[in-house]
Design a protein around this nucleic acid. Structure first.
Lengths: 218, 218
DNA sequence: TAGATTGTTAATCGATTAACAATC
DNA sequence: TAGATTGTTAATCGATTAACAATC
């Protein structure tokens, strides 16, 4: 990555898609890939891809060959900060919380999910070898392990209260799966991960196709 | 919504956040809200909010009062198409798939999740009153209920195969939770819902804060 | 009326696309 | 060399911000 220059938000947001794609190609044993190939598979423009990659890669692509996949993967991972490790916890050990707790894919991204918390004593125990603690211990454990991120998977009605507890525990970032707007002090990062919204947006795209298809058919 | 004009992608992408926020305020019994208040809570600019709302709302805000929340909610829901109903299925009845199958929030968005499918006979049965069928029946049921969207929650290694089955069943949109790039024919919509990426992006934001904080402290 | 708040027109900013020279 | 593919500069496009008039 070239230092000094800043990388736009739009470019940054495409990096995970590049990374996923490149890892897939690397898994097939492919060593080089052209911007045109990436663009086609990812539905982008080849020029855009080249510009994006130029901003984060440590060495240029080779004319006639394309980009060396192994190097690109390294550069993008470094750019995205997957080498810095972060500790995270889950708040809400219901179905979704437990599924995420058991999920093993986070380690590839420099994230340790170390525990879950739940207000109900019945949920306390362990899932997939990871502990589920009562909510009261959130503050203590957050400080002990310097937790920076919480994944919020409680029911809608409990979300704001849980959010307050997270903030009080000194955790500055929340990935919120509850379909509610959360109120938190400035400086606390909240990202909304609303499954229903994602799904609805996808449905919307399909509906557009149908409408456009109908128009064409006339 | 004013017809004839087109609504930009950027505006559309903010609508779910407005909707979530407005529903929260409505739940508190509030009737009117100003663009400035929305902007503050959502971290946007007031002018931007007014412009967004002007594009989708059926009647203008009232100077001195702001916007009528109840009307806005209706307009945004109509705009986003939450009134057209869509049938969806889940492919992969592991922890995440079962959690999503049990999730009740989809109905608010015009989405019926009617069943799950799994390749393993052990998973076949029912979860939360909804059936889990063997993969072989995907095509048949997809056609019978005119399924338009599939939620893919199989392990990474099974994802491409499952994707092929979904496409073969005539389903044109996939919400993919497996952290893999999927290959599908043109015209099939794929949306990547990578939990680890969302979390990593959030961590990135925090890291930026820390760096900026460090710089300030000097 | 006075004041808060809206909607709109013009100016700025940022990102994408087009054109083309550079390189292996 | 010829040709594929890269990187860069300029032009276009789209979205946000600034300024201000309109309205209840």
């Amino acid at each position: 990555m070239k230092n000094g220059e800043t990388v736009s938000k739009a470019t940054t947001s495409r990096m995970p898609a590049y990374l996923r794609y490149l890892k897939g190609e690397a898994g097939k044993g492919i060593e080089y890939v052209s911007s045109a190939a990436i663009a086609k598979d990812l539905g982008l423009s080849a020029v855009g891809v080249r510009k994006d990659l130029a901003l984060v890669s440590s060495r240029p692509g080779k004319p006639r060959f394309g980009f060396e996949i192994r190097l690109l993967i390294e550069d993008i991972e470094k750019f995205l900060g997957y080498h810095r490790w972060t500790n995270a916890v889950i708040v809400g050990a219901g179905g979704l919380g437990r599924a995420i707790l058991a999920y093993e894919g986070f380690e590839n991204y420099g994230i340790h999910v170390i525990a879950a918390f739940d207000a109900s004593p019945a949920k306390v125990g362990a899932v997939g070898g990871k502990p589920v603690y009562p909510m009261e211990q959130l503050g203590e454990i957050a400080r002990r392990f310097s937790i920076r991120v919480a994944i919020l998977t409680v029911p809608r009605s409990a979300a704001q209260q849980a959010c307050d507890a997270i903030v009080k525990a000194g955790i500055g970032a929340i990935l919120n799966f509850a379909p509610v707007h959360l109120h938190a002090p400035d400086g606390v990062h909240i990202r909304y991960e609303d499954l229903a919204v994602s799904l609805a947006a996808l449905c919307g795209e399909c509906a557009e196709d149908q409408i456009m298809g109908d128009q064409k058919r006339r």
